Simulated assay, not measured.
Amino acid sequence: MPAGPPHVVSGPEPGAPVSTWNIANALTVARLVIVPVFIVFLFVEGQGWRLAALAVFLVASITDQLDGWLARRYGLITDFGKIADPIADKALIGSALVCLSLLGELAWWVTAVIIARELGVTLLRFAVIRHGVIPASYGGKVKTVLQILAIALYIWPGVPEFARWTSLGLALLVTVVTGLDYVFRAVRLRQVAKRSRA
C-alpha cells in the first residue's frame, strides 16, 4: 500500500488569530513562577544548594530561548508574548543581580546600571505601546545571553574572578548600547505613528 503524505507540523494559517494561551506563552509564565524558587535556593547556605540555584537559573534561562524559538517556528507570536517575555527575563535577571549584591558577591552599582536599563526599556515600551509594540532586537537577545553567562559564573562556586569580571564587563557594555538603541527605536516609532495620523 502506498505511503501517505509526510506529516508536517505547522502553525496557524496565515492571518488566523493566534491564541494567547499557547506553549510559548506558557513557558514564559513558567519562567516567572520559577524565579521565587531560584531566590530561595540561592540564599540557602551550602554548595549543593548553590549548584541547585545555578541549575534552576539555567533551566529558566533555557525556557527564554525555547519560548522564542517556538513562537517563531510555529507562528505563536502574540502581543502578550512580546510584552511578557522581556518582563519574565527582567524578573529572572533582576532577582539574580539583587540577590548576588545582597550576598556581597556583586557590586551594587553593577546591579543598579543593569536594572535601571531594563526598567527603562520596559517603561519605554509601555509609553509607546499605543503607537505599536517594540519587539526584542537581536542585540537585546545577545545582551540577555551575556547577562545569563555572567550571572551563571558568579553563582557557580570557584570560578576565577578574572573570568567573572570579563564576562560581566562585556554584558554591561552590550546592556548600555542596546538600551540606547531602544530609545532611538521608540523615537522613530512615535515619529512614524505621527506621520501616519497626519
Score class of each variant (00 low, 15 high):
residue 144 T to H: 01
residue 149 L to C: 15
residue 93 I to C: 02
residue 145 V to S: 15
residue 154 Y to K: 08
residue 85 D to P: 07
residue 145 V to T: 12
residue 106 L to W: 03
residue 110 V to M: 09
residue 96 A to W: 08
residue 153 L to K: 11
residue 100 L to Q: 06
residue 93 I to D: 01
residue 140 G to H: 06
residue 150 A to M: 07
residue 84 A to Q: 02
residue 101 S to L: 03
residue 99 C to N: 10
residue 102 L to E: 12
residue 113 V to L: 11
residue 133 V to G: 05
residue 101 S to H: 06
residue 107 A to F: 08
residue 97 L to W: 09
residue 100 L to R: 09
residue 136 A to C: 09
residue 141 K to S: 02
residue 112 A to K: 05
residue 149 L to N: 10
residue 88 A to M: 09
residue 125 R to W: 06
residue 90 K to Q: 09
residue 93 I to Y: 05
residue 105 E to F: 08
residue 116 A to C: 14
residue 140 G to Y: 05
residue 115 I to N: 01
residue 92 L to D: 09
residue 126 F to Q: 11
residue 107 A to G: 03
residue 151 I to M: 00
residue 119 L to E: 03
residue 90 K to S: 13
residue 85 D to S: 01
residue 87 I to H: 00
residue 94 G to K: 13
residue 102 L to R: 10
residue 134 I to M: 07
residue 98 V to Y: 05
residue 142 V to F: 15
residue 92 L to M: 05
residue 122 T to R: 04
residue 118 E to P: 05
residue 143 K to S: 07
residue 121 V to C: 02
residue 115 I to T: 11
residue 82 K to N: 06
residue 116 A to W: 10
residue 144 T to L: 06
residue 89 D to F: 11
residue 107 A to N: 13
residue 119 L to F: 12
residue 131 H to W: 14
residue 95 S to Q: 14
residue 111 T to R: 11
residue 132 G to H: 07
residue 146 L to G: 11
residue 122 T to W: 02
residue 121 V to R: 02
residue 130 R to I: 08
residue 140 G to F: 01
residue 107 A to C: 02
residue 103 L to D: 10
residue 97 L to K: 13
residue 97 L to Y: 08
residue 89 D to Q: 10
residue 135 P to L: 00
residue 122 T to Q: 06
residue 127 A to S: 14
residue 104 G to N: 01
residue 108 W to T: 14
residue 129 I to K: 08
residue 143 K to I: 00
residue 87 I to E: 00
residue 91 A to G: 09
residue 115 I to G: 05
residue 97 L to G: 07
residue 141 K to L: 00
residue 113 V to G: 07
residue 144 T to R: 12
residue 128 V to W: 10
residue 147 Q to H: 08
residue 106 L to T: 02
residue 125 R to S: 07
residue 147 Q to G: 13
residue 114 I to H: 12
residue 131 H to D: 15
residue 126 F to M: 14
residue 96 A to L: 03
residue 100 L to E: 09
residue 124 L to A: 08
residue 146 L to F: 08
residue 115 I to E: 04
residue 146 L to V: 04
residue 83 I to E: 10
residue 133 V to M: 05
residue 123 L to M: 14
residue 84 A to P: 09
residue 90 K to V: 01
residue 104 G to K: 04
residue 121 V to Q: 06
residue 88 A to I: 10
residue 139 G to C: 00
residue 147 Q to Y: 02
residue 89 D to V: 05
residue 126 F to A: 12
residue 133 V to E: 11
residue 87 I to S: 01
